[in-house]
């Protein structure tokens, strides 16, 4: 049983990363469109953005911190620290953190370029993590189930 469980834990780790990155890309796309077409303030966009966990937790934390810190960059970073286990690596974290420091600081065309640049940077990571989930995720489940079956046979 524990072998099967550990297999699924490994798989969910890969799944969490894919899910977070997919939602993050959706968020940037929505943000880009809102900035381009409605020019709504960031706080309003964040409040109205509807998504599922783990991104929803991150966005709501960021909105909470905005009222306390008085700085978007600080709130973005603080929310990132709070939601530590997003399943993403150091490089991906840096890209997302840097995006927070430039958000809301310039005109519409600048913001659109920042969004596009960030999307271009993060998309390859999503593709590779999808591939990893496909190969390594399934492999870990099979291996763990196999090992646990082997151990149970040996014990019997």
């Amino acid at each position: 049983m524990s072998g099967v469980l550990s297999g699924f834990i490994f798989y969910s780790k890969y799944n969490l990363k894919v899910s977070f990155l997919t939602q993050y890309i959706n968020f940037i796309t929505v943000l880009r469109n809102e900035i381009r077409y409605s020019q709504k303030p960031l706080v309003e966009i964040l409040k109205n953005f509807r998504c599922e966990n783990p991104l929803s937790k991150y966005i709501s934390r960021c909105t909470e911190y905005l009222n306390k810190t008085g700085s978007f960059k600080k709130s973005w970073d603080a929310a990132f620290k709070d939601c530590g286990c997003l399943g993403i690596s150091g490089e991906e974290q840096e890209i997302i953190k840097n995006f927070g420091s430039t958000l809301g600081s310039c005109d519409v065309s600048g913001q659109i370029h920042y969004c596009d640049y960030n999307l271009d940077m993060i998309k390859p990571y999503l593709l590779s993590s999808k591939e990893k989930r496909k190969s390594k995720g399934k492999l870990s489940v099979i291996l763990c189930v196999g090992i646990s079956v082997l151990i149970s046979i040996v014990l019997i």
Partner: peptide, 8 residues
């Protein structure tokens, strides 16, 4: 409101 673009 941290959104310079909306006052461009």
């Amino acid at each position: 409101g941290y959104s310079v673009y909306s006052f461009e």
